[in-house]
């Protein structure tokens, strides 16, 4: 494997030798080294109209606050779901992506809890 990065040429010196920047690192772009970042895999297409497809990788972030309108990963009776978080009637609610299901109230006593915010989406093979 060669270490050539556009810098050390054998004949004519590369004019770019001091300007090597290397390939783009998506782990950096998505900040995956932060302790709060967890990639998760989405199953289901109810958020299709928002451009989030079955099989996409979502970047979950557990460090943020709850914000109305934010997409979140929540645990609902033992299952992780992607939903929109909304503040309504003095409480937090999980809203489905295609309005086909009734909103669910966030309430740890009923086993409904926000686990993380969604901070990014990655699609490997469109």
């Amino acid at each position: 494997m060669s270490d050539y990065k556009g810098d050390r040429t054998t004949g004519f010196a590369s004019p770019a030798a001091d300007a090597v920047e290397g390939p783009i690192d998506l782990a950096d772009v998505l900040d995956l080294r932060r302790p709060s970042r967890y990639p998760v895999r989405l199953r289901g297409a109810t958020f299709r109209t928002r451009g989030i497809m079955d099989g996409d990788i979502l970047i979950a972030d557990t460090s943020g606050q709850q914000i109305s309108g934010q997409l979140v990963i929540a645990s609902v009776s033992g299952v992780f779901v992607l939903a929109e978080l909304q503040s309504r009637k003095g409480g937090w609610w999980l809203i489905s992506g295609d309005d086909m299901r009734e909103p669910v109230r966030v309430d740890p006593a009923l086993d409904v809890e926000v686990w993380a915010n969604v901070s990014g989406v990655v699609r490997e093979k469109p």
Partner: peptide
Amino acid sequence: RYTTELSEITEVRSF
């Protein structure tokens, strides 16, 4: 291996 192997990351269902 939920956090170190891409083929084994947590699955979430779209609501």
